[in-house]
Design a protein around this nucleic acid. Sequence first.
DNA 1: CAATAGCCCTGGTGGC
DNA 2: TGCCACCAGGGCTATT
Length: 315
Amino acid sequence: MPELPEVETIRSGLAELLPGQRIAGVEVLLNKSLSAPESHITTHIAGAGVTDVRRRGKIMIVDLSSGYSLLVHLKMTGQLVFEAGGQQPAKPGTGTNEPHSCPNPTSETGDGRRVAGGHPTQSMAGDLPDKTTRVIFTFQDGSKLFFNDQRTFGWMKLVERSKVERDKCFMAMGVEPLGSQFEVCHLKSRLKHRKAAIKTLLLDQSHVAGLGNIYADEALHLAQVHPSREGQSLSDEEIERLHAAIIKVLGDSIQAGGTSFTSYVNANGITGDYLHNARVYRRQGEPCRACGTTIDKIKVGQRGTHICPNCQKLT
DNA sequence: CAATAGCCCTGGTGGC
DNA sequence: TGCCACCAGGGCTATT
């Protein structure tokens, strides 16, 4: 599921591709995927240019010249894939190339899909649209942006640019973990007097914005804190470790182009790379990279949770 | 107010 | 082979 690093990877890709593009048309294949009055779609999306692509927490913000912005939450299986228009060579015989080429800021893949960062030749998405495609944006130069979402939990909505910051989805959102406002004392104050499990608190977007199941598990392992521990039980030293761990796992993942598994792809339909280096996530039964103990999978707050029982002790 | 359970949804998996 | 219960999970809502 896209968390902060995945959304940031997609954002930076789209930020190189979309600004300057003008939207020619919008095709909504599943109504609930895009909430905006029909009249607004024709008047405030169609014909508008894209001016900027931003991010807040796990939500992407696409600013339009019409004075409106599109907010996008990918939830678990959402994807935003850009397909360049113009030339469409369609080479059916082209096989997969080297899976780990060097970072490539902007290049052509030869099939019309443009690549901005990440790993250009790694498992591309198939032909689009497909059965998971919910919304298609067509640009004046023939390029397209596909909003795909297998499980349809994701959403896009159109809001006035001036009201974006006050939108309901941002009102209760906590600090950006990679921003200057995320300080140890902030985390301390949010965990104080809280009896809920530390992992549950990390997943609560009102404390820190952008952490999901993957990076909560990863950060807790790096900080050597058991996810079931009560928030209030963490020592100052543990909170300091956790604070540093959150910043490190998110930063490392962005560096690697986001996590690679199931349905995550970046703006160009390309998978990420972080999971190869995951500490505990989806590694149950395998040895801990730090101490060799077998990674365990438990439940914390209804969520599947991966721990090293040796590195992360309850007491 | 804090904590928790249920719900939305589809595709993959494992048991029979 | 088919059928089906079950699981995955972000975040909103209702309940305690």
